[in-house]
Every structure is written in C-alpha cells, then in structure tokens.
Design a protein around this nucleic acid. Structure first.
Lengths: 253, 253
DNA sequence: CGCGGAATTGATGTGCATCAACTCGGGTGG
DNA sequence: CCACCCGAGTTGATGCACATCAATTCCGCG
C-alpha cells in the first residue's frame, strides 16, 4: 500500500501538471524541460472542503492558485459592509492575480465544494519567467485576459437587464465547462441562488423567478442545483437582448 | 528657431520620460541606464485632438499608450450594438493592456480633448522586461493593478445606487488629479454628461439631477464642465452609503 | 421527526429609466 | 454683431423593472 500511496501522489502530480499546463502554457508550446521546471515549483494539490479559504482579504500575497477540480468564489467587502462576489472559478482557472500589485490580497477566496487546488508561489514563478521568454509572455497574456473578462462583466452590469445577465451567466458556465471537456448543457451549480444574485447584481428572488421563467419557456431544466440547458441558441439570443422591445440607448459623441 | 525646435522636442522627450517613469517604474527605482533603455523605445508624444482614435476595436495590438496630458476614453460595443464606456484615462495612466491576450484590441480608444500620448511598442517592451527583472515586476504590477481597478468598478455597478456611483466617480477623478499634482477639488470634466452616465450605468437625466442635488446640498459647485468639490469628506461618506436608510443586504453563506 | 436555512411565490413599493418639453450656450453665416 | 440653429444639459411627469417585504414550501441534516 506504500506503492498505492506513491501512485496516488504521482497521479495528483500529473493531474496538477496538466492543469498548470493548460492554464499557463499549453498555447505556447513550452520546451519539455521548461515545463518540468515550471512543474517543479507547483505545490501539489491538497483537497480542500466547502468553506475553506485559499486566502483572506488583507493577507500577504504569496501564491497564485489554479483550480484543478471543484470551484472557488472570490469576494470583496464594499465600504458599506456587505460583500460583492467578484467571480466563480472553475477547473483550469487562476486565482489571485489581482494581488500582485500591492502584495496584499484585496479579496478573499472561499472554496464552494470539495476541490483540488494547485498553489504556485509567485516569487518563484516570477524568477522562472525571467529566464523563459515564452512563459513570461504567457503570464502577460493571463493577466491581460483577466482584464478582458472584467471588462465583459462591466458591460453586463452596466448595460444588461436581469434576464440578459442570468442568460450570460449560464452561458459563461456552459462554455467554461465545455472547454474543460465537460458537458456544456448539463451541470451542477456549486453556488447558491443568493450568491448568483450577489454576483449579478440581482436579488435572490429575481434569480429564482428567472429560473422558473426560463424553465417555463423551455430554455432550460432546473432541478435544485442541477441545470440542463435545453436551448443554447435561444439563450445566446437572450444575452443580446433579443427579447423585449429593446430600449435603444443613444450613443455618446 | 532651429534651436527653438530642438529645445521643444527635448522638452517633450523629457516630459515623456517623466511620464513613462512615473507610470512604469518610479516605485521600483530602476538603474539610470535601464531607464534610458526604456526611454529609448518610447515613441515621443505627438499631439492628438478631440475625436482622434488611438486604436479601434478589432485592430491588431502593437503598442500600449501612456497619457501625458489630456484625456482618453476607452469603450467597447455590447452585443446589442450600443456601447459601454470602460474607462476615462488621465495623465500618467496606461491604455491597451487588455489587448495583450488576443493581440487584438477588444475596445476602442478615443481622445476626449487635445492630448499628448506616448506610444510604447509592446514587443520591444516585452524584450526589455526579459532582461530587467524589476521592470518585469513592474509590468506585472501594472497589469494586476488594472484588474484591481476593474474590481472596484464591479463593486460600484453591482452594489451602489446612483448617488453613490456619481460620488465615487467624482472622488476617483479628484484623487487621480491630486496624484498628478493638480487640484483635487477644482477641475474640468472632459467628458459629457452622457458619457458619465454611460460609464456609470445611469441615464443622462439622472446624472444631471444628481449634479443639481449635490450642488443644492453644498457638496460641490457645478458650472457646465467646471467642477469644484466643496465637501470631500461628505462625498466620501456618500460613497459608503451614509445617506438614505441603507437597505442592508443579507450576506451569502 | 423536526429544525433551519435555501428556494420559491405572491404582493407591494420605489429608484431610476423613459418620454417630453424647455433652456442654455456656442458656433456659424449673413 | 446679431439672428439663427443645434446639440448638450436641465427639469418635470410618468411608467416599469426589479427590490423589498411577507408567507409558504422544500430539502438537507442532526
């Protein structure tokens, strides 16, 4: 059974490498030896449980994290005291990049379900990127991509109504699951309705009513946390505001 | 007058260096020779005029831009066709970081008033960062900071009401002007009411009414584009929702 | 089995968008 | 220099999407 344990660790290790690979470097085609150097600094994923924190707002920034399995939410307090959920992070996604600037975490990261998370000490990653140009580029891209995603979210919160927001949210999950080889139309929500509402800037009740309405309209099937998207094209049309007489917003000069 | 011209160019050059310095490296304390290497790749600022584009959505990404004087807005089209203003960029601020990921600009950048803008070819900057560790770190910080700012904006759009948004907007401008040595309480708005509304997710009329109300309440003085903030502490309190019976939002688990 | 938080559903209230009318100021041309 | 125009801004009246409040059901868990 010692053998068993070794195999198990190796399995985690390989899985972790794969995860790091796809998140950090797959598109770049790093040399094999560089991949190994990268993999060496990645701390293997230990299993975390619902409610565990990866880090808390105010803590010193040391590492970024890559979700291997499971899901994580990040959230920050607003001045008033209530909190805003900033994102839900699925397998393959990276957490903590916003803390590089001040070396202090500006948000907290909490595990939503039993999850495996890789930790990458940022200082060591930074050293590595100094000698591997393609990895450096990859990190720039990663950071830039995060900005682009936030931009999408600004558009969502600034210009879209409740049903457009929820449709966009569902499609986002769908696409991200699909990218990781999972079903794009059949999945479980690891977050509560309340958390969805908080994230989308809506009240719980509104989220609930929309789920009901979407189901009535044959767009999806909802059974508690289990979601089946039945009409992806229709949902995509919804995001673009196909429903409702569109209030045409005048353009600024 | 040939002499005059040389002096003028040199003035721009030095100013440009200063601008690059404070934006990219001041906090790091680069070696003098590294500063010069950085400065060498910065294209000197030519004057741009209201309505000029730095780049348009869909164009190939080549350079990032640093505002020296004046102001710039960035905006992206939503699927419906109307556009969302993503940010207003004041002196010392950097534009274009979101395009690194795809090497394509996802938003457009339009000059709001006569402005001087430095251009930094990103490929050359990237080469440079590979050999100057502190510059690499600085770029990471810059990108990370941008993420943090977007996060702030998500909080604004997700959780704050109209008057909190406008107060936050005014204070943001105030702080950014102050950081550049300008008055934090007396400045001109280079953007229209309509653009402010678009940015904050509000209707023009709402913005206008709030300006009136803030003025009535003695918080500020508004004369067309000329703004004077008379009670900064009160505005700060407003951002935190001090006014109005605060609808206490329940927290998700 | 029974407690408690999560989710749903219905009734009501309100903040802000929308519509509409008017004013202001700045630029243009006679 | 004034008359005109036109877009930007303001102000008021109205409507609606969504928040809020309230009551009930559902489900997980001890």
């Amino acid at each position: 059974m010692s053998q068993q344990k070794v195999i198990s660790l190796e399995t985690i290790r390989v899985a972790c490498k794969n995860c790091t690979l796809s998140s950090l470097c797959l598109p770049m085609g790093l040399a094999q030896e560089d991949v190994e150097r990268l993999d060496d600094i990645v701390k293997r994923a230990r299993p975390l449980h619902r409610g565990d924190f990866l880090f808390r707002e105010g803590e010193r920034f040391r590492s970024i994290y890559v979700v291997k399995t499971g899901s994580v939410k990040t959230f920050a307090p607003s001045p008033e005291g209530n909190e805003q959920i900033l994102g839900f992070h699925l397998p393959g996604e990276i957490i903590g990049l916003d803390a590089i600037d001040k070396s202090i975490h500006a948000c907290s990261a909490k595990v939503l379900e039993t999850s495996a998370i890789c930790e990458i000490p940022f200082a060591r990653l930074e050293e590595l990127t100094a000698s591997i140009a393609s990895l450096q580029h990859q990190i720039y891209r990663l950071l830039s991509k995060e900005i682009g995603q936030d931009t999408q979210m600004l558009l969502l919160l600034g210009k879209k109504n409740a049903e457009e927001r929820l449709a966009a949210f569902l499609l986002s999950l769908s696409q991200r699951f699909h990218k990781r080889g999972l079903s794009p139309s059949d999945f479980y929500l690891s977050m509560s309705r309340h958390e969805i509402g908080n994230y989308l800037g809506l009240a719980v009740e509104t989220v609930s009513r929309l789920f009901t309405r979407f189901q009535e309209d044959g767009l999806m099937d909802v059974d508690r946390k289990h979601i089946q998207l039945l009409d992806l094209p229709a949902l995509e049309a919804l995001v673009c505001g196909s429903a409702h007489y569109r209030r045409q917003q005048r353009q600024p000069g």
